[in-house]
Design a protein around this nucleic acid. Sequence first.
DNA 1: TCGCAATATGAAAAATTCTTCAATTCAACA
DNA 2: TGTTGAATTGAAGAATTTTTCATATTGCGA
Lengths: 111, 111
Amino acid sequence: MPVPLYQAKADFFRTLGHPVRIRVLELLRDGPRPVRELLNEIEVEASNLSQQLAVLRRTGLVSAVREGGSVVYSLATPDIVDLLAAARRILTDMITGQGELLAELQAEAAE
Amino acid sequence: MPVPLYQAKADFFRTLGHPVRIRVLELLRDGPRPVRELLNEIEVEASNLSQQLAVLRRTGLVSAVREGGSVVYSLATPDIVDLLAAARRILTDMITGQGELLAELQAEAAE
DNA sequence: TCGCAATATGAAAAATTCTTCAATTCAACA
DNA sequence: TGTTGAATTGAAGAATTTTTCATATTGCGA
């Protein structure tokens, strides 16, 4: 397998490797949301959120449309939901038996 | 959802966000391998590979056992295969129609 | 026991990513 | 037109991650 593909995959995962960006994706799982609402749920400054949204946009994981005075974000593809689920499965495995985070992960899975 | 969980998820993805580490995981998909073999397939210095293997070990994604003169690595859980597959699906979506990487991704999926 | 091959480790320098802040854009509306 | 609220951008410093190099460790065979 040629080199650039690894790079593309690594870049993709690296994009997910940030707490604010993960939170955005999880919030968007439930449907499109304006920036203002994301900002309500994520404790971070507006400009910082914007930076992270820009990263997600560049990577193509989310798309944004302007609606009147606000900008509404949504997931670019529903497959992202599967990915997050697969990640949770692994995280659960990894933490099982040793973990304070375990209860939280399980609670979330039951949602 | 409390804060540390996002952190754990982000850390997890960040671990995958490195070309050498991705390659290692994909090679291990086909079964356990000694470091020496990984080194044959990945163009990187031995000490660099060791560093990346250490990251994967710390995160718990792989495990290592010593076998005589060599150290054999394997995936900690087969769920990782699902995760990589989900990622490929998304990457395919994202690149479709615009992409030089597309052919490679499809070839790989057909393996 | 010596020496060699295979891996791992620690630490410093190089590179990348994050956060923050000031400045900017754009639409809505008085 | 001017102002205001919503969101983005650019740039600089802070923080984190990668790479590299020198040095260790381990097990094996001479």
